[in-house]
Design a binder for these strands. Sequence first.
DNA 1: AACCTACCAATTATCGATAATGCAACCTTG
DNA 2: CAAGGTTGCATTATCGATAATTGGTAGGTT
Lengths: 233, 233
Amino acid sequence: MAVESFTTPTVTELVPRQSSRRSHALFVALQKEIVLGQLAPEQALTELDLAQRFQCSQGTVREALMQLSEAGLVKRLPNRGTHVAPCHADDARALLELRRDVECRHLDRVVRRADAALKGDLQAMLNAMRNAARDGDEYLLSVHDRAFHTRLFETADLPLVTPILTRCLIHNHRYKILNSQPNRALEETAERHVPILRALEARDVEALRGLLSHHIATIVDFGPDLTSAEAPR
Amino acid sequence: MAVESFTTPTVTELVPRQSSRRSHALFVALQKEIVLGQLAPEQALTELDLAQRFQCSQGTVREALMQLSEAGLVKRLPNRGTHVAPCHADDARALLELRRDVECRHLDRVVRRADAALKGDLQAMLNAMRNAARDGDEYLLSVHDRAFHTRLFETADLPLVTPILTRCLIHNHRYKILNSQPNRALEETAERHVPILRALEARDVEALRGLLSHHIATIVDFGPDLTSAEAPR
DNA sequence: AACCTACCAATTATCGATAATGCAACCTTG
DNA sequence: CAAGGTTGCATTATCGATAATTGGTAGGTT
């Protein structure tokens, strides 16, 4: 194992080099508006309107829309435009179950490959969550929350599965934010990740599985359905 | 508009209106080459090369590449190009488990909403699989196989989950084709879908779950891991 | 020799303009 | 007045050209 005396972890990779891309900035902005409901489900998005609004060309808007389509936040129909994706409870519940399966099933791989860099990154993300919670910024909190779980799962080294988790995460948070009173116990949400980090440090796969499963099942109250089924494996 | 004799069911919607789009044709062609391994994993794809090869502009190539990225068949890094996605056994196994979860978990919804149109479409796809198998066209067989399972799951009416299944399916088939002797019992693969169709007609959810779970677990031989875990719910 | 810097070739990102498509309202026609 | 065809508008799809970014290389400095 490498020496872990680095005070600042590799946060450099968290905001890679995409900040210089107009289309990516647009993607980030639109994603936020969709998750916050400022762009309503089923709402139509026309490329030239967005181009004028963000002062860029139609092609750049198109690239951003295709990235949103990759995240499942919009649906693009050939020659018929782009619409914000729906957000129904049935889909949300299914995606939450799916997320639990994905995150809980490969924890042995995660623990096996966990190193100091992972620990440092997760700690940094936890602090970012705390800051966002303190500032009452629910969306920023969700951004770092997704980063936390994504970083954790990436350690399993299943690059073809990670995009699926990404999809689940964004829709989980979208449904939560769209169906809850704003600013409800944000600090608590951040602190919920502490025991997960502890179990990871102890390399306790079973404890980790139980914590994550409960953590995910209690994100949104869907009734007893989700908690009844056990975590996979 | 010419008069259509409606001997075949609503296959019109299977190839919607995308055939007239250059980028979609390119997407289909590249997808085939990737799944067949003619484009090797990790191979670099440069946009202008493809534009010249397919006689179209760079933007059109880009759109196709983004669709491939949505399917997880390529990975695009900003300013660093597009590469064919890797294809490792660990990912393939994880995606196969995930596919089984998705397909088996919502069969109650499928059965509840199944109608004559679904039955007709599935029967048509089964016939298409048989034709492809008879012609020894393993890829075409896989195309109709994916269409069969996708059409079945769409009946569950979980539009946010369907794209995830799509992703799993394409990677399942890619791994299978990349890791098997060509033309191995194609007819058998097609006929495997007959009991599934029968159980659907009988509206027997439990039988359907067992059949589908076994059907999926035996696509690729990953050892006893997949068959040991039971189908969810 | 190791390191830093300025350039170069290759590639992607963005742009503005044009072509193609789909939809809806309108008009014709029986 | 209904059915079918036609036109016009709004929007997406495609194109060719230009700008920006990257990685590597050659050259110079300590």
